[in-house]
């Protein structure tokens, strides 16, 4: 650094290494590095309060607000469609599941400090990418990537299926399935973490 010297790639000695494996520390060139979102590298940041408010609003919407809307809105939609849509019955579980999922992603600081809440804060867990070498990638990083893809696929499939069923049959109770998909999407990193923890 001070002298302008550089590291050499562990696998290709004639190439410079601009990165190291974040787990074992081996210097790596671009061709030898794998960049993966690693749940063990997560950190925490602000934005927890906003997420809490959105989550609570969704839950409140499910339990109270949708019922408080004027009945005429639902009747008007039904008259346009020519049949009952059951939209409220579909939105209520979808909102509830999404709201609970959002609350499930929150973390708290200072709740173990007794009655002293001076250090209390709500934070969110943030994902980070980590550079790893091939041998470290072949450990739990490959499993992480697979799990991430699986949960995304399930979430997207459920969201699409719920919407498709609702629109195709004009029977919007199926929206609860999209709600499940949305909740899985929101919680996918936490679910991945849980699987990694349990499997290890």
């Amino acid at each position: 650094m001070a002298s302008g010297s550089t590291l050499s790639c562990r696998n290709h000695g004639d190439r410079g290494a601009g990165q190291v494996c974040g787990e074992c520390g081996d210097p790596l060139c671009g061709d030898c590095s794998n960049r993966v979102t690693d749940v063990t590298l997560d950190d925490y940041g602000a934005g927890g309060v906003r997420r809490l408010i959105v989550g609570l609003l969704l839950i409140a919407g499910s339990l109270v607000l949708l019922d408080a809307l004027p009945r005429g809105i639902w009747l008007a939609l039904a008259s346009v469609a020519g049949k009952p849509l059951y939209l409220r019955l579909g939105l209520k579980p979808a909102f509830l599941l999404t709201g609970i999922a959002l609350l499930g992603t929150l973390r708290f600081r200072g709740i173990s400090g007794g009655f002293d809440f001076s250090g209390f804060s709500i934070v969110t867990r943030r994902n980070n990418a980590r550079v790893v070498c091939q041998s470290c990638y072949d450990g739990d990083k490959r499993l992480q990537r697979t799990l991430s893809r699986v949960f995304k696929l399930i979430a997207v499939a459920l969201i699409v299926y719920g919407i498709y069923q609702s629109v195709a049959a004009l029977f919007f109770r199926w929206l609860w399935i999209s709600g499940v998909g949305g909740a899985i999407w929101i919680l996918r990193e936490d679910l991945k973490l849980a699987v990694i923890e349990l499997s290890s």
Partner: peptide, 23 residues
């Protein structure tokens, strides 16, 4: 002193799927 914790982790005594290996 105040490490981030998941509510479920607090309730279940720390088992919450939290991994702090790099935190």
């Amino acid at each position: 002193e105040y490490p981030p914790a998941h509510p479920l982790g607090v309730l279940t005594g720390g088992v919450s799927g939290e991994s702090e290996s790099a935190y």
